[in-house]
Design a protein around this nucleic acid. Structure first.
Length: 805
RNA sequence: GCCGCCGUGGUGGAAUGGUAGACACGGGGGACUUAAAAUCCCCUGCCCGCUUAAGGGCGUACUGGUUCAAAUCCAGUCGGCGGCACCA
């Protein structure tokens, strides 16, 4: 009895695929292009972990399926190679990031190849190589040229341990996401990209995408569109005016005070010369740091101080307070406050600021409580308006638009739309990233580096030890290069770009085949974009996946690409945990695939991951179940190598099961239900095992159905079945609906909803015959005895339901 | 607090209105073997019944509802997971 030897077989087929360039795609000539991508990995020094396999292997199975369906499938692979880990490693060991990354990429490629994916390695990208990051810089220049890049002095999130600025997304509960050090504030000049300009477009585009609803909802919340009105507040005894945003302008009459964010740049000027100037300034300093460095808690951290200033509004002169809860990055940083907002209400109560009620509940008892300021009544569509008098008696929800129109007519305010989304800070005070292609003249003005000087290379002569300034500032070579090209006194920008910039456009660079001449060939881009299927983790829902969409939209507006959206269909794989916990080095619960691959081969391992449960749900790792998949593989091999026979009178049972399996496996892989596709194949095998011989045709179909899931074994089986060529080049099998029909069927009989009997009948039995036959069953008769039949239902081919009573 | 998802045997899971537990893992029993591994066969939701059986009851987190029929749809409750949370 021959044993299947996965190690020998898998190596053999990988070599043959490579030799015959089975997975290399001619991008210009492709028919039915299907672009299938996974989120590219970071090349860490560690080996591939279960999470990588769980992402890449099922994604590959889907790609293989699409290929056999007649598509030219392009699945590239690359490396998101810039970023902190390599730099931190360099700081620790002195190994240059370029060296460690190059080595890591090499070992990672070897490991990735063992999965047996259809990657077209000729189109690989590595974001840390000059031939890639010249385009990262080119992208920056496009943004700069089109006024989507700007510089702004801002308090940035500063991690004193990593010595770097962090994006809002990288701050976790006031701590650095990486090292958990408390964030400090540091004023710095940063480059920003105007994502906010695209807020509406980013929002609208979501409706066109085949993405998980959950992810779309997360993006919608992240973008945070809100409709309301702006009012103008003039500061009393001053020329200063503020536009103040209000999302519930219905209750504008209730406004009795206003608050300003502690971070507001005008604040020092406003309080200058006030009696309590020092008190206010001290408060601002303290709260600013507190807000930036720890999670703000509405109830516990509610505090403020009176500025001594008043603002003029139609409701009178409102005292202006500095309040901890006011946010600088939303609206104008000034908030109008009323009795009809939970926070405002709590704040006013705490500091004894007068409140004025303009809306009450319908219930008179409750209304009385609200009038007496016993609790805050807000945002209830049924609330009854007391003011303004033109709207007295109307409902809060229903009167909204009328009040807005009224306010607009009266010139008190004007409608506006606000977004929570903030512009993207792309500057990083780090070494290991793409240098920002900007130089400064002796007066300090920013100039774009002309494209002919790209790639603007990352200098090599830097110390990695963080000093608080950007590492590039130490490079003599960079300084000299800048002066040589631009003139004496010119200085280079020393910040590098956020790695999310690198990963925002790689889908185009795969298509460019690393071309130096163009960002992406127009015809290829038009033919292949958008990406048909993008598979990766849900953790990127609000960063990478918004940035990539923004960049694509911007590039389309600049005329470089032809579509607004980069990823037509998105799927998130589930998470594989170990003993219920996320696998991590610190917990020491990381499962290494290596031992399993060694023992069972890559086909078994990837099938086991898929067999564990639904792809999008992940699951908890267990290493006992893999045996079952190994047995499946060995049984396939044994059955086909022992029972294969040219002359087989195929029995109906086999034919029916075969067609049913084709149908089920096809539907299941389409839905990414790999677990049930596999169980269908196991069922088919269980049937085949009962028969003495198996035809070459059946073996061939089995090989094809198996090809997406176990690519190596399928080739071996295809060869065994006597066929030539690669199984992956074959057409996906089709089933014949007529062959699914059996001679007899089993019909269940329900009495009052409970199954009491079943009988076999000809497939084409009529409704009346089925019901008649059901009634003849002795057990059924027992339940019908002395009772009247009230209703008879026949579900074709499945059951008879009788209602008696 | 808000939004979303989920809850099924000892375990992973299957079934998206039509015979709950497919397919596996684990467990029990048997065959083969000097023995073990491997392999093969049978049993395996819980309970009642029985020499064997026929049959019956209960059962998809909980409580109700809709329906001839509910794991599936609706309402509420409890538990778990994920995201957001000062956005005026």
């Amino acid at each position: 009895m021959s044993q299947y030897d996965p190690t020998a077989s898998e190596g053999k087929w990988r070599k043959r695929w490579e030799k015959e360039r089975a997975y290399n795609v001619d991008l210009t000539a492709a028919k039915n292009p299907y672009y299938s991508m996974v989120m590219f990995p970071y090349p860490s020094g560690d080996k591939l972990h279960v999470g990588h396999w769980y992402n890449f292997a099922p994604a590959d199975s889907f790609s293989r399926f699409m290929r056999m369906q007649g598509n030219t499938v392009f699945t590239p692979m690359g490396f998101d190679a810039f970023g902190l880990p390599a730099e931190n490693y360099a700081i620790k060991t002195g190994v240059h990031p370029d060296d460690s990354i190059t080595a890591n990429v090499e070992t990672m490629i070897t490991q990735l190849k063992r999965i047996g994916c259809m990657y077209d390695w000729e189109k690989m990208v590595n974001t840390s190589k000059p031939e890639y990051y010249r385009w990262t810089q080119w992208l920056f220049l496009q943004m700069f040229k089109n006024n989507l890049a700007y510089r702004k002095d801002a308090n940035v999130n500063w991690c004193d341990s990593c010595k770097t600025v962090l994006a809002n997304e990288q701050v976790w509960e006031g701590k650095c996401e990486r090292c958990e050090t408390d964030i400090l504030l540091k004023p710095m000049t940063q480059w920003y990209w105007r994502v906010k300009d695209y807020a509406q477009k980013l929002l609208d585009g979501l409706d066109t995408l085949d993405w998980p609803e959950k992810t779309k909802t997360m993006q919608r919340n992240w973008i945070g569109r809100s409709e309301g009105m702006n009012f103008t507040f003039k500061v009393k005894d001053s020329d200063v005016e503020f536009e103040v945003y209000d999302s519930v302008p219905q209750t504008y009459r209730a406004q009795t005070f206003a608050v300003i964010a502690p971070e507001h740049p005008m604040l020092p000027q406003l309080v200058k010369g006030q009696k309590n100037e020092k008190e206010v300034l001290d408060f601002i300093e303290r709260v600013k740091v507190k807000k930036a460095t720890q999670k703000y808690n509405f109830a516990e951290d509610l505090e403020g101080v009176f500025t001594g200033r008043y603002v003029e509004f139609v409701t009178g002169d409102l005292p202006l307070w500095v309040a901890s809860f006011a946010v600088m990055d939303y609206g104008s940083g000034i908030v109008n406050c009323s009795a009809h907002d939970e926070r405002d209400f709590a704040f006013a109560k705490k500091y004894g600021i007068p409140l004025h009620v303009v809306m009450v509940p319908e219930d008179e008892k409750e209304a009385e409580k609200v009038r007496n300021l016993e609790y805050c009544f807000c945002k209830d569509p049924q609330g009854i308006m007391l003011e303004p008098e033109e709207f007295e008696g109307r409902r809060w929800g229903e009167a909204r638009q009328d009040i807005i129109n009224h306010l607009e007519q009266e010139g008190i305010g004007y409608p506006v739309v606000q977004y929570k989304l903030r512009d993207w800070s792309i500057s990083r005070q780090r070494y290991w990233g793409a240098p920002i292609p900007i130089v400064y003249d002796p007066e300090g003005n920013a100039h774009a580096i002309p494209e002919k000087h790209l790639p603007w290379e990352l200098p090599h002569d830097v110390e990695f030890r963080p000093t608080g300034t950007s590492p590039l500032a130490q490079s003599k070579e960079l300084k000299e290069r800048t002066e040589k090209i631009f003139g004496k006194g010119w200085t280079p920008e020393v910040d590098t770009m956020d790695t999310f910039v690198c990963s925002s456009f790689y889908q185009f660079r795969y298509l460019a085949e690393n071309s130096e001449k163009e960002f992406v060939p127009k015809n290829v881009e038009k033919n292949w974009m958008p990406v048909d299927m993008y598979i990766g983790g849900p953790e990127h829902a609000c960063m990478h996946l918004i940035y990539a969409r923004f960049v694509t939209m911007a590039l389309k507006d600049f005329g470089h690409v032809s579509h607004d959206e980069p990823f037509k269909r998105l799927v998130h794989q589930g998470l594989i945990t170990n003993q219920g916990a996320k696998m991590s080095k610190s917990k020491g619960n990381v499962v290494s695939p290596d031992a399993f691959i060694e023992k069972y081969g890559s086909d078994v391992f990837r099938m086991y991951l898929m067999f564990m449960g639904p792809f999008t749900e992940g699951g908890d790792w267990s290493d006992t179940g893999i045996k079952g998949v190994d047995r499946f593989v060995q049984r396939i091999w044994r059955i086909f190598s022992e029972k294969l026979n040219k002359k087989v009178d195929q029995e109906t049972e086999v034919t029916v099961k075969l067609h049913a399996t084709i149908k089920k496996v096809t539907a299941d892989i389409e839905r990414l239900h790999f677990n049930t596709a596999l169980s269908a194949l196991m069922e088919l095998l269980n049937i085949l095992e009962k028969h003495d011989a198996v035809s070459h045709d059946v073996a061939g179909v089995f090989a094809k159905l198996l090809a997406p899931l176990a690519p190596h074994l399928a080739e071996e089986l295809w060869e065994l079945s006597g066929a030539t060529g690669f199984v992956i080049d074959q057409k996906w099998p089709t089933y014949d609906e007529a062959q699914l029909i059996t001679d007899t069927i089993t019909i269940a009989v329900q009495i009052n909803g409970k199954v009491r009997a079943e009988f076999t009948a000809p497939t084409d039995i009529s409704q009346s015959d089925a019901i008649a036959q059901a009634k003849q069953d002795p057990n059924v008769q027992k339940y019908m005895e002395g009772k009247e039949i009230r209703k008879e239902i026949y579900v074709k081919g499945k059951l008879v339901s009788l209602v008696v009573g």
